[in-house]
Computed example of a mutant assay.
Amino acid sequence: MTEELGLRARKKRQTAARIWSVAVDLCSERGFDHVSVAQIAEAADVSKMTVFNYFGTKEGVIVGPMEQHAADPARAVRERRPGESAVAAMRRQFLAQIAERDPSIGLSGDPRALKVRQLVNETPTLAHRMVIFHMRSIQLLADALAEETGDMLLARVAAAQLTGARNALIMENHRRAIAGDSLDEIAKGCADAAERAFDLVEKGLQGYPGNA
């Protein structure tokens, strides 16, 4: 039974990846607004219902994989070490993601990742979807901080600063990738920039929210 469940999960991941790849290629070639879900389904050799079951909406097909990481900052805070500040925990998580060349922070060797970023830049509906994604990430982090401090206002202030620094670093990675810089060059520059960015936030938050 365990083996069967594992095979089923692997096939689902493969199907989702195929739908995403086809959708990104079609939308990059024709423009997001000129590609239908039916066309994506046909090219991926699945039904329209399968596309909706996996991603919910056409926008979700393109940016869904990115949205799976909305809770990354909140998880870093919740799982941080005893006595570790929220800034230190997010810095440590981010540096680990750099070392792993994590696609979710803009370090991907897949050309389609750049196509997604370009589609977001060119398509208002996708850009709006990403704004909602970022707002959700901030709220998830604020919830995690407020659970400890009991102060949602300051939790939101801190969450906005932390996610703002993180998002700025990710945007710089995308910018450099689009400019043609190599993955190793981008990763090295990002690690140096991350140290400076989180240092700046740490000075403002000064160890917030205290010992865990």
Rank of each mutant, 00 (worst) to 15 (best):
I138C: 05
L169H: 10
L119F: 02
W20N: 13
M66R: 14
D45T: 09
D72W: 08
R112H: 15
V157G: 03
I98T: 04
A159W: 07
A158N: 08
V157W: 02
A44H: 03
L140Q: 14
V35L: 08
A177N: 08
E59Y: 00
R92S: 14
V157S: 01
R30I: 02
R18A: 08
K48S: 06
L95C: 15
A155D: 10
Q68V: 06
I138D: 10
A160T: 15
R117D: 14
K203Q: 09
F94E: 01
A17Y: 07
P103C: 08
Q206W: 11
D181T: 01
N211Y: 03
R129V: 05
I19L: 11
L95W: 02
L145G: 04
V201M: 06
A193E: 12
I62M: 14
M90W: 07
A212E: 05
V51Q: 09
R176H: 07
A179V: 02
E148D: 03
K188A: 10
Y54D: 02
D102W: 03
D72V: 13
K203N: 07
Q14F: 04
G56V: 00
L183G: 07
Y208R: 10
E185P: 05
R112P: 14
V87E: 09
F55Y: 13
E59L: 02
N211S: 11
F52P: 10
A177E: 09
N167I: 13
P111S: 07
R196M: 13
K12P: 00
G164F: 01
P124S: 10
Q118H: 07
P124G: 09
C27W: 05
I98A: 13
H134M: 10
N53Q: 12
I132P: 01
R78K: 14
R156K: 12
R156T: 07
A194H: 01
Q206K: 14
V87Q: 06
G109N: 04
V116Y: 12
Y54F: 10
L95V: 06
A113P: 05
K115I: 00
N167W: 06
A17T: 02
I170Q: 15
A159F: 05
A212H: 04
G56I: 00
A88E: 14
A44T: 01
Q68H: 11
M66E: 13
N53A: 09
E147T: 08
E67I: 04
Q161K: 05
M66L: 14
Q93E: 10
E172A: 11
Q93P: 00
N173W: 03
F198Q: 11
F55D: 03
A212S: 14
T50M: 08
E3G: 00
L169G: 11
M135Q: 15
L162T: 06
I19D: 11
L95H: 09
E3R: 04
F55C: 02
G109W: 00
A38P: 10
M152I: 11
G180Y: 05
N167C: 10
M135K: 15
F55G: 05
V87N: 09
G164Y: 03
T123L: 15
R117E: 15
L200A: 15
N53I: 05
P65M: 01
C27S: 12
S28T: 12
L205Y: 08
I105D: 13
A155R: 11
V22S: 12
R92Y: 00
E84L: 04
S21H: 11
A76M: 07
E185I: 00
I138V: 15
F55M: 01
K12V: 12
L162M: 09
